[in-house]
Design a protein around this nucleic acid. Structure first.
Lengths: 208, 208
DNA sequence: CGCCGCCTCAGCCATTTGGCTGATACTGCT
DNA sequence: AGCAGTATCAGCCAAATGGCTGAGGCGGCG
């Protein structure tokens, strides 16, 4: 069996070395590079051409994980991308999958889960942690509550406290469009105000 | 020099093994036990009597890190406790120090910082990551940023997504008074909108 | 006592937000 | 070709929010 090459992208040094130590115990899996930011991940992916990229979504300064995933996919260099992050936010899950992630693992996943996800990813399988799967499953049961990728993106920015104007500037759309998206989000979340949407997003979506 | 014994408490397996691998490279430091929860940390600390306990604050289910620190200190068994966590929330810092933590490190700390913190802790020194120190320093410089009890109460309800009218009803005060309190809160938090205040409250004050 | 911080309230005005209706365009699927 | 879903934008109007000034009552503290 061919050795699976892995690139780790996480701004926490201890997480990288932990993951590296863990994956190192498995024959057939080798960590070939480590990145501490989205930019670095893109550069190192180009150099090493790993089979799998394990990516944190929240990476301190600069490019975030979602953006890095998008750009990796645009290159079409065939890596399987696994999200490896702390929280199981509905919005993040939707955005990550939309960006092209193959799997979604939480950082409290067991070693077995992690190995299975890496091996599965190179074979084109999607593996996700149980809580993540549960969230998705729950969403499938009432489709009206599913936010579109764009809506999820907006909701995520909403929790940063931005105004409609700022949201528009950040997403390169007009304020009118922002308001349209917000109205849809409110309807889907079952709230009437921006504040309640933020509160709901944070408490229900795990954006802690 | 005597070997420094360390207990790791963190619900993320990869963080524990990363920290263990990292500390293992240092002669004179040895990880003697690992706990995945507050309860486990208490039990293992009793068994092994480590010189230093490195503790995450947010540990999935059960007892959280703050509570575990308090109980460890009550026993008076002389361990130095280092907080090792992801976020630098003002509230968490204050609570951790109050509970008896000797130092406060963020997970993106460099290996050198971590080694220095462990060695310093056994000698009774307090070591904290730069962003943490910066926050504390900032608070000491302008005490005006401290919310009054009433303001804190309002801010807490604000994060539930209530409107001014609802806030007034809930607190038995007029909408005008609500607005006054809000204006003061915005000034102290350095924001201009309700949404930003909610975001700040949640992210900075640890009301997750 | 007098000062100061906190909590309370009012009115005015500009800005922001939310509700509504309707419209164009692109995509994927049938 | 036609439909459904998504994303984009516009205009209008009512309601909520935020900024500003001013003010009374109350409790602690020098």
């Amino acid at each position: 069996m061919k050795t699976i090459t892995v690139l780790l992208a996480d701004d926490h040094m201890v997480v990288r070395s932990g993951l590296k130590a863990l994956l190192g115990t498995q024959p057939g899996i080798e960590v070939v590079a480590e990145a501490a930011s989205g930019e670095e991940a893109l550069a190192l992916a180009g150099q090493h051409g790993p089979a799998v990229v394990m990516m944190d979504l929240a990476m301190g300064a600069g490019m975030d994980g979602i953006e890095a995933i998008k750009q990796l996919r645009q290159r079409n260099s065939g890596q399987a991308i696994l999200v490896f992050t702390t929280y199981d936010s509905d919005a993040d899950i939707v955005r990550a999958v939309d960006a092209g992630a193959m799997g979604y693992l939480l950082k409290d996943a067991s070693p077995e889960e992690i190995f299975a996800a890496v091996r599965g990813a190179v074979q084109g399988q999607s593996v996700m942690s149980a809580p993540v799967a549960s969230r998705l499953f729950q969403q499938l049961r009432n489709p009206d509550a599913i936010l579109t990728p764009r809506e999820a993106e907006l909701l995520s920015l909403l929790t940063e406290g931005l105004s409609n104007r700022e949201l528009g500037q950040r997403l390169f759309i007009s304020e009118a469009t922002v308001k349209t998206h917000l109205a849809h989000i409110y309807a889907k979340l079952g709230v009437e105000t921006r504040s309640a949407a933020i509160a709901t997003a944070i408490r229900r979506e795990g954006m802690r």
